[in-house]
Design a protein around this nucleic acid. Structure first.
Lengths: 158, 158
DNA sequence: CATTACACGGACATTTTTTGTCCGAGTCAA
DNA sequence: TTGACTCGGACAAAAAATGTCCGTGTAATG
């Protein structure tokens, strides 16, 4: 799994508490990560339609919709790609005892098992929204945490 | 996810139908895959204690226990490693607004969400055994499929 | 009992993916 | 009109996965 997923999720949580667009460079120094690479993850979120980029002097990124409507799965798929992690290469059709094509209409048992597990994983990620994460953060560190971050993002460079 | 997982699972299913040790090279040409690389996956299974290697002239690999007692999760963890796919780098403790160490006794909300999803994934993989896979294969292709493979493995080189 | 051939095991390259960096095009504010 | 700041995609470096090789040990065999 791509490590950029973690960065993207943290950024989404932070973006729930701001109204002004937040520049990628500022989000990067807030989390102390590579600005150029974080930019790439935010671009992925933008391509997926989760955030909207505002260009120009006071530009940056903003969420496109309510955090209640953005699931963790949305973010993960935007950054890591929507395809399944396990890819079946159909090796049952290869080799001297290859299965006949007409017997391969349904996916093989191994693919079914792996797909079932990935579906369970997806369901779990889909059941958590970015709003839930923000609520948990407030519950963990107190109400001042996100407010402080919001203020810091709006203030001049540290 | 490593592609070798698929090869390892297919090999485990095949091994349920043999009593004689099956050499890695023969399993490789059965599936038409790279012999050297498949050997590496089988070595991983051996290190994890799922298969036992028999050396010498009529050597090869055999399952160490009943297929009912080998879960798909066992195979996946043996090949891909037991660690979680999502690794939290604790970026909440970095940057100018880093969370205080005493407030970081519990894992952060993002890590909790990802860990929950991975647990669901693990549970699903744990609920399927290699015996279940073999049963499904028989159900899909008929009882002769695994028997034919077993006979081919025992016969002389094709 | 010596020999011989076979199979595993880990060390060695190669390719692909991931991670990280950079500069140009576009845009909004002043 | 100017200016400065933003995103966006094209360009390298590093890491991981994939693929290959030969040495070591073992068991069957004559």
């Amino acid at each position: 799994m791509s490590g950029g997923v973690e960065w993207a999720l943290h950024c989404c949580v932070v973006l729930t508490s701001v109204e002004e667009p937040a520049p990628a460079a500022r989000l990067a120094q807030l989390h102390d990560v590579s600005p150029s690479y974080l930019a790439k993850q935010l671009q992925a979120l933008s391509r997926a339609g989760l955030v909207r980029s505002v260009q120009g002097k006071a530009g940056g990124y903003v969420l496109t919709r309510s955090p209640e409507l953005i699931t963790v799965l949305d973010v993960v798929e935007a950054v890591d790609g929507p395809g399944p992690a396990f890819v079946c290469t159909e090796i049952r059709r290869r080799g001297p005892l290859a299965a006949s094509p007409e017997s391969c209409t349904a996916p093989c048992a191994i693919k079914r098992a792996m797909a079932g597990a990935e579906n369970a994983w997806r369901d779990a990620l889909r059941s958590v929204t970015v709003a839930d994460l923000a609520r948990d953060v407030t519950s963990d560190y107190g109400p001042g945490a996100l407010a402080g971050i919001s203020a810091w993002l709006g203030a001049a460079e540290a």
